[in-house]
Design a protein around this nucleic acid. Structure first.
Length: 517
RNA sequence: CGGGGUGUAGCGCAGCUUGGUUAGCGCGUCUGACUGGGGGUCAGAAGGUCGGGAGUUCAAAUCUCCCCACCCCGACCA
């Protein structure tokens, strides 16, 4: 029997970060791998987080004038072929439906039959089919803008997958808008980028950088791709949301045309923007520790868990009743615009198991309530953002009155902690030698073929003149890429001109380099 | 699709080189008792086509051949 681990999750982040990530997901019961390779089963606790993400974002989309609709899962192959770069970008990872029926074969097994005249592609994204519909809906400038979002699943046949971060099928939302002018479409692109940044920082408590992608990292078919980039605890970057200015590329491919005020026939300008279940991976890797998940209160499926301690109570029923009454009191409180969510866990489990199960699930506040607490009319409280054994008795009334404030404080603490970590691992780099040293792990391991490399590096802020060949060379040699060209004011010192650290050529500003998911 | 590796109980593994009675171990699971505010102890129980097929042999988890699946690395990616 191996020695009992000191932490609820093993290995620890330090020991093996990728494995730790998997173990946190398992310990928190968020999701598991499915029988279908590369696809995941999102379990209730994980799905509840997604539902909270959906609820908040959906409200933000509605508030910015968007409406939900739903477009088909299947896209005729010919649609995908309309935009050249788009084809190139997605063709290699499409699931294709070629038949519509199964028949019993000679050996009794089912074989596909009824071949389709035109194969259908399972959507990897919906620009093409939505464009096709918009072309019908738009005749006049009076029909614009169209501001639509859809919540859907998409399939990208990835070769290497990781729960939440990259799966063959994933859930997301994709906004698709069409506008009469370039200016309006550009404003829309930036507006939604701001919505994502706002959501990431104020709800996920995940600091993000807003920036623009380089040509190589751009969405296939887009004119400009903007992104929010977050730093995980292994100091790698996670692209957490994207907003694309598509110019007239898709409007031309799908023939979205309208007559303007002067009677001129013009192509519309379109945008698209999305975030996915990958955000849950970001949530895990931003806040969690070696005891499991830590949830920002605003997205936690439960804010408070109450565990009645009834084993040596003379009257267990009274303790339970006290807990139920407390739960009702708490539910009457609001936090961040919704009722406080309370779990009352009266399962017949040993105390330790029960407590640790909620620690691992990341519930912000845990209450253990036994006869002694009831007698004192108090609660015995622990917070997930503090040490597990740091518990204290608090008078019940005081706790109820302060719970919302405490949750907000935890939300703020998580953000502050994540931001401090990110800022501590931001480094302005002025020459190539320092750059290479920064991204070379201790011990000098080149890649991860001999196991995970120690946590190292971070976000490097360095001048770069945009040479694609150099970007590719750095990617090959160091597995480091330009995560984004930060928008003005996002990174202090990034906006000034200088010289590219690789070529010495003039560079208009510094860009953000990092290893990425 | 190239290189490497692994398939034995729910999970992790031993056994295989040197074939030999009812195939083991750890964890987990279930039941009960004692317990219990840092995940406890004891007793008992369930659970296996040894990835599949063919062959060699008196005898195959073990040797041979074929097939399948999965994992890791590379190329590609939200």
């Amino acid at each position: 029997m191996p020695p009992k681990p000191k932490t609820a999750v093993s290995p620890t982040r330090e020991e093996n970060y990728p494995e730790w990530y998997q173990q946190v997901i398992k310990a928190a019961d968020l999701a598991e791998n499915s029988p279908v390779r590369g696809c995941m089963v999102i379990k209730p606790w994980g799905y509840a987080i997604w539902e909270n993400i959906q609820r908040v974002l959906d409200g933000m989309f509605k508030a910015t004038g968007h409406r939900n609709a739903y477009f088909p899962l299947f896209i005729p192959k010919s649609y995908l072929e309309k935009e050249a770069q788009h084809v190139e970008g997605f063709a290699k990872e499409c699931a294709v439906v070629t038949h519509h029926r199964l028949q019993q074969g000679k050996d009794g097994k089912l074989v596909p039959a009824g071949e389709l005249e035109e194969p259908l592609v399972v959507r990897p994204t919906s620009e093409t089919i939505i464009g096709e519909m918009y072309a019908k809906w738009v005749q006049s400038y009076r029909d614009l803008p169209i501001l639509i979002n859809q919540w859907a699943n998409v399939v990208r046949w990835e070769l290497r997958t990781r729960l939440f971060l990259r799966t063959t099928e994933f859930l997301w939302q994709e906004g698709h808008t069409a506008h009469a002018t370039e200016e309006e479409a550009r404003v829309e692109t930036m507006k939604m980028l701001d919505v994502y940044a706002d959501f990431a920082q104020n709800f996920m408590a995940m600091p993000v950088l807003k920036g623009k992608k380089t040509e190589g990292e751009r969405f296939p078919g887009a004119v400009d791709t903007f992104c929010i980039e977050a730093m995980m605890q292994d100091r790698k970057a996670l692209q957490s949301g994207t907003s694309h200015f598509l110019g007239q590329n898709f409007a031309k491919a799908s023939d979205i045309k309208f007559l303007d005020e002067s009677g001129q026939l013009r192509h519309a300008w379109t945008t698209s923007w999305g975030v996915s279940t990958r955000l849950i991976g970001g949530l895990v890797m931003t806040h969690s520790d070696d005891d499991g998940l830590i949830l920002p209160p605003k997205l936690a499926p439960a804010h408070v868990v109450i565990m009645p301690i009834t084993f040596k109570a003379e009257n267990p029923g009274a303790v339970l009743e006290y807990c139920q009454k407390l739960a009702a009191e708490l539910r009457a409180q609001t936090f961040a615009g919704r009722a406080i969510e309370v779990e009352l866990d009266a399962r017949d489990l040993r105390g330790g198991d029960k407590v640790w199960s909620w620690v691992k699930k990341g519930v912000p506040i845990r209450l253990e309530i036994g006869p002694r607490d009831m007698a004192a009319d108090s609660v015995f409280m622990a917070r997930r953002d503090k040490a597990t054994n740091e518990k204290a008795g608090v008078p019940r009334a005081q706790f109820v009155a302060s719970v919302a404030g405490m949750l907000q404080e935890m939300q703020d603490n998580l953000f502050a902690r994540a931001k401090a970590y990110r800022d501590a691992n931001f480094k302005v780099i002025e020459n190539e030698a320092d750059f290479r040293a920064y991204f070379t792990p201790p011990g000098g391991a080149k890649d991860e073929s001999d196991g995970p490399t120690p946590i190292h590096g971070g976000f490097a802020i360095a001048h770069f003149n945009g040479d694609k060949a150099i970007e590719e060379k750095i990617r090959q040699e160091l597995a480091v890429t330009v995560r984004c060209i930060p928008l003005p004011g996002q990174v202090s010192g990034a906006d000034e001109a200088g010289k590219c650290i690789f070529t010495g050529q003039p560079s208009p500003q510094r860009v953000v380099w990092a290893k990425a998911y």
